[in-house]
């Protein structure tokens, strides 16, 4: 079937099998490999993207479900070659080590700050419960999201 998804503002039209997962569409058809597959079982959040502005696990969605939607991936966050505030604070606060969870963490954080612009530390920890990180112990990730929230 033919589907069209606006990915980071570019209209991507491709022929897919209905069983194609959104994450496959993004990585293999749109050639945007910033979005990672960690667990492939909806547990880790590495594959998190925004679908119509809200975080979703792209390994647990069919691309066909996003037909006609706007999807934002990690590649879509920069403007004029500059990091957005969440990316910048992950760098500043050392919110990553190996980086495998980072794209998903950043996308989940962008969605969270949209919903809770001035979060408490507990809001951030609960808001990121769908994202696992095996390296950082979460501390600097939480610091990064709190720092991003202060950038207006």
């Amino acid at each position: 079937m033919k589907i069209s998804i606006s990915v980071n503002g570019d209209k991507q039209t491709h022929d897919v099998e209905p069983r194609t997962l959104l994450v496959q569409f993004l990585r293999e058809q749109a050639n945007l490999t910033g979005t990672k597959v960690g667990c492939d079982t909806s547990s880790c959040g590495a594959c998190t993207v925004l679908v119509d502005g809200e975080s979703a696990k792209s390994c647990t969605m069919f691309a066909a479900q996003a037909d006609g939607s706007a999807v934002t991936t990690i590649e879509g966050l920069m403007t004029d070659g500059k990091f957005n505030r969440v990316q910048q604070s992950f760098q500043d606060e050392h919110g990553l080590q190996c980086g495998f969870c980072t794209a998903g963490m950043v996308m989940a954080a962008v969605s969270l700050l949209e919903e809770i612009p001035n979060p408490t530390e507990s809001d951030v920890r609960i808001g990121l419960e769908g994202n696992l990180c095996r390296c950082t112990g979460y501390h600097n990730i939480v610091k990064a999201v709190m720092a991003a929230a202060r950038v207006k």
Binding site: S42, G45, V51, A56, K57, A108, G127, E129, G130
Partner: peptide, 9 residues
């Protein structure tokens, strides 16, 4: 229920 991503869908 679940996490934010799950509750969004």
């Amino acid at each position: 229920v679940g996490d934010n991503q799950v509750r969004h869908r």
